[in-house]
């Protein structure tokens, strides 16, 4: 029997977005997972270029920065930290070089999105290069961040405490997140984030559910949201394991 309970609220089709409720978790642990998702789960990102020809209007360095920010698919557990994968790009103008033009030497690694523009090339301009993608952490550089929008809020309950007075102010009661109603999880978007629509004419009190967190995870496509969560948990485990061993010596 686990002390935790996990329930998914929604998951996007491509699995880049997920929203789920975790119960029985301490704020410290919830925050540990959130921070690990942002800064500690490594992803591949272009870090070095060998430019063969760059007759575009941008300096090599600027092209390098733009290429670095292209998310690359990084299957968890397949690469070691610092390991590199070579990609190549060769585009002759007039054309726009897109992330999808990158050709990877490794079948597991590819641009997560094909439609990120790198640069617009005019007649007789050309961009040809080889790039080394390296596996590193978000702590080192934001381009290695797997999670782009990761956060949590408390799960909340709404209690009806009475009727609104006849002449009470009709102010909006905006609430964003997820509320729990008799064990049902209701995203507040369902009623326009305004409690007046859900409980017309009622006076309500909103309270946090202790130990229940609604996580919102969105990844850049380098891995799926569930993979990112599991990788984050594993990174906490690995550090605890290392500490335990170091202390027992």
């Amino acid at each position: 029997m686990s002390e935790f309970d996990v329930e998914f609220i929604d998951r996007s089709e491509d699995d880049r977005d997920a929203r789920f409720v975790v119960r029985g978790v301490t704020p410290a642990f919830a925050n540990g997972i959130r921070r690990a998702m942002i800064a500690d789960v490594p992803t591949l990102s272009i870090d070095e270029l060998r430019v063969i020809e760059n007759s575009s209007v941008m300096f090599d360095e600027m092209i390098g920065l733009r290429l670095g920010l292209v998310p690359l698919t990084t299957p968890p557990g397949e690469f070691e930290e610092g390991e590199t994968v070579t990609l190549a790009l060769d585009v002759q103008g007039p054309a726009t070089a897109y992330s999808g033009d990158l050709v990877s030497a490794d079948g597991m690694v590819a641009p997560a999105d094909e439609n990120v523009p790198i640069i617009d090339l005019k007649e007789s301009q050309r961009l040809e290069l080889e790039a080394e993608a390296v596996l590193d952490h978000g702590k080192t550089h934001a381009k290695h961040q797997g999670g782009v929008a990761v956060g949590y809020r408390h799960l909340q309950t709404v209690e009806v405490v009475g009727d609104l007075g006849e002449f009470a102010d009709d102010d909006p009661q905006i609430l964003r997140g997820v509320i729990e109603e008799d064990g049902e999880l209701v995203p507040t978007e369902e009623f326009g984030n305004d409690l007046r629509n859900r409980y017309p004419g009622k006076e309500v009190r909103v309270e946090d559910v202790p130990g229940a967190f609604v996580f919102d995870v969105e990844t850049d496509g380098s891995m799926s949201a569930p993979e990112l969560v599991l990788e984050a948990v594993d990174s906490l485990y690995a550090r605890a394991d290392e500490l335990e061993e170091a202390v027992q010596l």
């Binding site: 002390e3 978790v25 997972i33 485990y237 605890a240």
Partner: peptide, 9 residues
Amino acid sequence: KSTSFRETF
């Protein structure tokens, strides 16, 4: 805790 969270998730 990590193991338990992983399994539940």
